[in-house]
Simulated scan of single mutants.
Amino acid sequence: MKVFAGDDKALLAARHKINEEFSKNKQVQDEDAIKALVKLGEDVERELKTQIIQAKQIKPGVFQAKITNDTLKLDNLPYNESAILEEPNPGRPCCQSKQENK
């Protein structure tokens, strides 16, 4: 309700998914399995609260984002084109070359 407040379509989709998952697992009786499912639900809730934001377009090309106290906020560094190496450093192997050798 908090993450999707005011967004009836998202609230309906979330409610549908919650009911679908509950119905799929309602026959589970093993206590450890139930605890694992509850933990999964709590993890999903935390992920939604911290990673999802609502944004609405207030005029063409301009959006207003709804950021909550729960929203994870990280430092946002501007793109620095000079930080990209034109050619790989000959002294250091490229991580992609490791994948190619496998």
Score class of each variant (00 low, 15 high):
residue 84 I to R: 03
residue 75 D to N: 05
residue 61 G to C: 09
residue 50 T to D: 00
residue 15 R to W: 02
residue 35 K to Q: 14
residue 85 L to N: 13
residue 42 E to T: 12
residue 71 T to R: 02
residue 30 D to R: 12
residue 66 K to V: 10
residue 46 R to V: 05
residue 2 K to A: 13
residue 5 A to L: 13
residue 15 R to K: 10
residue 94 C to W: 15
residue 41 G to R: 07
residue 7 D to F: 15
residue 89 N to L: 04
residue 4 F to E: 06
residue 39 K to Y: 04
residue 19 N to V: 01
residue 12 L to W: 10
residue 28 V to L: 07
residue 41 G to M: 09
residue 9 K to N: 13
residue 1 M to C: 12
residue 46 R to D: 15
residue 19 N to D: 05
residue 87 E to P: 01
residue 3 V to E: 00
residue 53 I to Q: 08
residue 38 V to M: 11
residue 62 V to Q: 03
residue 19 N to R: 06
residue 83 A to Y: 03
residue 95 C to E: 09
residue 7 D to L: 14
residue 49 K to H: 08
residue 9 K to A: 15
residue 92 R to S: 07
residue 55 A to L: 02
residue 98 K to P: 03
residue 37 L to W: 01
residue 33 A to V: 04
residue 58 I to T: 06
residue 17 K to A: 11
residue 25 N to Q: 15
residue 73 K to P: 03
residue 2 K to F: 12
residue 16 H to E: 07
residue 8 D to P: 06
residue 23 S to I: 11
residue 70 D to H: 04
residue 61 G to D: 13
residue 32 D to Q: 11
residue 1 M to K: 03
residue 56 K to P: 04
residue 23 S to L: 14
residue 10 A to G: 12
residue 100 E to Y: 10
residue 83 A to L: 11
residue 1 M to P: 01
residue 102 K to C: 14
residue 73 K to M: 04
residue 18 I to K: 01
residue 56 K to R: 09
residue 45 E to P: 05
residue 81 E to F: 07
residue 42 E to S: 09
residue 90 P to N: 07
residue 80 N to L: 05
residue 64 Q to I: 13
residue 17 K to N: 06
residue 63 F to K: 04
residue 84 I to Q: 02
residue 35 K to H: 13
residue 21 E to I: 02
residue 100 E to F: 13
residue 14 A to S: 14
residue 81 E to I: 06
residue 79 Y to D: 08
residue 69 N to M: 04
residue 58 I to D: 05
residue 5 A to P: 07
residue 34 I to M: 11
residue 10 A to D: 11
residue 5 A to C: 10
residue 10 A to M: 12
residue 12 L to E: 14
residue 31 E to C: 11
residue 74 L to S: 09
residue 13 A to L: 15
residue 81 E to T: 05
residue 6 G to F: 05
residue 73 K to F: 02
